[in-house]
Design a protein around this nucleic acid. Sequence first.
DNA 1: TTTCATT
Length: 459
Amino acid sequence: MAAAPGGSVPPAGPGPRLGFSTADSSVATSGLNPGAAVPMKDHDAIKLFVGQIPRGLDEQDLKPLFEEFGRIYELTVLKDRLTGLHKGCAFLTYCARDSALKAQSALHEQKTLPGMNRPIQVKPAASEGRGEDRKLFVGMLGKQQGEEDVRRLFQPFGHIEECTVLRSPDGTSKGCAFVKFGSQGEAQAAIQGLHGSQTMAGASSSLVVKLADTDRERALRRMQQMAGQLGALHPAPLPLGACGAYTTAILQHQAALLAAAQGPGLGPVAAVAAQMQHVAAFSLVAAPLLPAAANSPPGGGPGTLSGFPGPIGVNGFGPLTAQTNGQPGSDTLYNNGLSPYPAAYPSAYAPVSTTFPQQPSALPQQQREGPEGCNLFIYHLPQEFGDAELIQTFLPFGAVVSAKVFVDRATNQSKCFGFVSFDNPTSAQTAIQAMNGFQIGMKRLKVQLKRPKDANRPY
DNA sequence: TTTCATT
């Protein structure tokens, strides 16, 4: 009904679009709060994220759905800053916290809006803090301090949702506790006000108040994982088979460049992380590159490598050219007439350049999908592949209008699939020819045309 | 295993 494409949606005015905050008198008559003065929201109101909204629905269309749970303070459909395109989600704040809770329990995953494949999402926005950001770890408490004592201590800073003293099986306090506040701000205030402020009786040092740090733990684990992968990659980059030795040399070269580029400002952990990203991207792009090197004349004609910066060409690819030339059949294996590989050279060293604040050919990343036949679905991506690596990998085959790796929101881990859109079908076909079945590690990439939205039906 | 998106 309201989904008339482009018809019923009023054009966004100039400047930031505020949805219809009723604080704006110009929209007060639009029906949000007829006859009401500027509404106030409660101090403990929750901003909700609303997802899985059909793109044809604007604020006016959504309002009735949410109004039945209480007075709306603000409702804003998210739009692309540049294109104004509806992003399929919105922020919703009720005047009352209770309304938000009711709406969440009544709607979240409870119904599916027309045209959507997945149920509507109604839940506290990420900006509201993920729970972790309101939860404090309290250390250096006295052993004799119980929940009541801890509550008394933290009460001045806000509403305490949870308070638990950690105890041994025999019931004695471990001298620490978790305290969860109603909001992030309250938690921060408590940190400011209490951390180090006093030394409790029987404690060996002053009170510790900090965020209960599952976040940091997770980050640490991720770092360790990456460091492990880096270690595994260096001695034997198996995925690249016979060319492993040369790839190792390249990777080491990469690592050296990166380490040099990192400068003294970054800690070792950040450096490792950065290296992982680049190395991962490089190893994949380098692989299809190898046969191309085999096609170049012995000694490497100046034409072939003209785009290459000296050091990498010499140290990284020089020996590789000689070696692959010696392998029987290596030049026919990939030389199928399409020969997209020479174009891979620039992208192969692009990860190095991304270390510096350059933006070689900043493609305007507006468009989500290309025309029919131009959009690829890619599965079995390496875990460490991000959008940037995806672009790098497919850039050799044509103009990439968008590249998206899907990420699990809860874990921030790649779901190992993504989409790449070209601006023409030929590039898409070339990419399929070249990259479908391409082996990385134990897996092979699946590269095929994206299934059209309405192709789910067998008949 | 085919767009889940966070002002």
